[in-house]
Design a protein around this nucleic acid. Structure first.
Length: 441
RNA sequence: UCCCCGGUAGCUCAAUGGUAGAGCAUUCGGCUGUUAACCGAAGGGUUGCUAGUUCGAAUCUAGCCCGGGGAGCCA
């Protein structure tokens, strides 16, 4: 091909290939796999948007054949050729490769470690920087991006302003869980945030309806498929809002995220073989059950949980299996919730709190409720929880100066996306998972 | 922190007290429509580490290291 003709060839992405059937194009990517059949080669290219098979015959393109033959997996290549519909090719289209440029050839002595077959979790996590190249992982990360975009769009459309809470905090937000301590300036200690909750309350009093969306850190020694030490949380908070408002907002948010993924990431959901029918059902209102009734459901199922006990994974699974949509459990006993949770005036032993449990055993994806607005009660609670009052003076100011009823919640992004994707573990839905005993790569 | 499971070739696994194996990957050869291609050949091992039992240990015992799942805690 001469220079002039080459300049006219459009550079496209693989997902656009169907629109160029019959034409000659250039794709830039990596060699995903190479099958050889005598004097025919079948290179499979990937470029991040999809994979496409190429075909090269030795007779027709001797030079291209020689460049591709024996080329190791994941070598980077720029391929040019005619696109045509081909039923025998994965994806339905293939490229008759007429020119190839090997950008970087992977060394034969150090072949690409991740093969197109089953691997163990430990091996893959140690090579997460390469693992994300596999089509399944790439599809999951695209679904995550869509979920984030949909969540922001929904919150913005509801009149909530995105505000960013600090990552460094002077002390515990909730006091109960373990914090990551870091050296701040001049011998000072600071902690990585475990929730933007307290700050978002201040922002709600300033802007009305707000939310934060950012990373959260928990130094809990939790080793389960539902835990990360670093995860992303979306936390709305609204002044003059009550429990009911937040439950409705949570239903709307989760539904909007799921439906947006179903609509805009259909191909990715198919790629990871997710049952889309079960996602299409996710529309408000969601089933609701009080803590009192949840206890009855559990006891009926033979579970030994009694009133006053918190729910573990088993209990959540029993309750969520009763429904085909996320279920809202509300009005937990006040004793088991955080110090800032408001109590039910009709029954002071109950908090105006709610959790949303995802279907299919993915656990709690949302926790929230109405906050205590009264200064004296809040101070008493701080003391009951043995929290350092001096650290919370700024927070108490919110009750000194124009305190109002307000409510909010936190949505765990990874648990939500793991449920939408149907992954075994939430570590697959974040690019570089940080877990107990694993911070590499 | 506690409970359970695991660690054998680069990878996935087999071998349950008696010569350490297969598939994939790698190297070489063959094949004009392959679909994680296939066929033939070759190279590749301190069986996580240490000590013990035994004529003999991948296998049994103890301790340690590393990883996974779960509990507690939480999104």
């Amino acid at each position: 091909m001469n220079q002039e003709a080459q300049a006219a060839v459009p550079i496209i992405t693989i997902e656009q290939a169907g629109a160029h059937a019959g034409g000659t194009v250039t794709i830039r990517g990596w060699l995903y796999n190479l099958r050889e059949s005598g004097k025919l080669l079948f290179p499979i290219f990937r470029d991040g948007t999809g994979i496409m098979q190429g075909v090269v015959s030795q007779k027709e393109h001797l030079e291209v054949f020689g460049a591709l033959k024996g080329l190791p997996q994941e070598s980077s290549v720029i391929a040019t050729g005619a696109i045509r519909a081909e039923a025998r090719a994965p994806g339905g289209f293939e490229m008759g490769v007429s020119a190839i440029e090997v950008v970087q050839r992977v060394a034969d002595a150090e072949p690409y470690p991740i093969q197109l077959k089953e691997h163990g979790v430990d091996f893959l996590l140690d090579r997460r920087h390469l693992w994300i190249r596999t089509p399944r992982q790439a599809a999951i990360l695209r679904i995550r991006a869509e979920a984030e975009r949909a969540a922001r769009n929904f919150m913005d459309a509801q009149g909530y302003t995105l505000t960013d809470a600090p990552i460094f905090t002077p002390a515990a937000c909730e006091g109960t869980t373990t914090l990551f301590e870091v050296n701040y300036i001049d011998e000072q200690k600071a902690y990585l945030t475990q929730s933007g909750q307290l700050y978002v309350e201040a922002l709600a009093a300033a802007l009305g309806k707000v939310y934060t969306f950012g990373p959260t850190f928990r130094a809990e020694k939790s080793k389960t498929r539902r835990h990360l030490t670093e995860f992303w949380m979306l936390e709305p908070e609204a002044a003059y809002a009550h429990l009911e408002d937040m439950i409705q907002l949570a239903e709307g948010l989760v539904s909007a995220v799921v439906q947006s993924v179903v609509k805009n990431r259909t191909r990715e959901l198919e790629m990871i073989e997710r049952d889309v029918a079960s996602l299409q059902k996710i529309k408000p209102p969601f089933p609701r059950i009080t803590y009192d009734d949840a206890i009855k459901v559990l006891q009926k199922a033979g579970n030994p949980t009694k009133w006053g006990d918190d729910f573990g994974g088993d209990e959540e699974t029993i309750i969520s299996k009763e429904f085909d949509r996320p279920v809202v459990i509300h009005r937990y006993p006040a004793a088991m919730k955080a110090f800032y949770m408001a109590t039910d005036a009709a029954r002071p032993e109950l908090s105006l709190s709610f959790d949303m449990i995802a279907p299919e055993g993915y656990g709690e994806i949302i926790g929230g409720g109405e906050r205590l607005a009264d200064y004296d009660t809040l101070v008493r609670r701080l003391r009951e929880h043995n929290l350092p009052e001096e650290s919370f003076q700024w927070y108490l100011d919110l009750r000194r100066y124009g305190s109002v009823p307000h409510a909010g919640f936190g949505l765990g992004l990874e648990r939500t996306v793991a449920w939408i994707c149907g992954t075994e573990h939430i570590r697959e839905v974040i690019p570089f998972p940080r877990m107990l005993y694993r911070v590499y790569p």
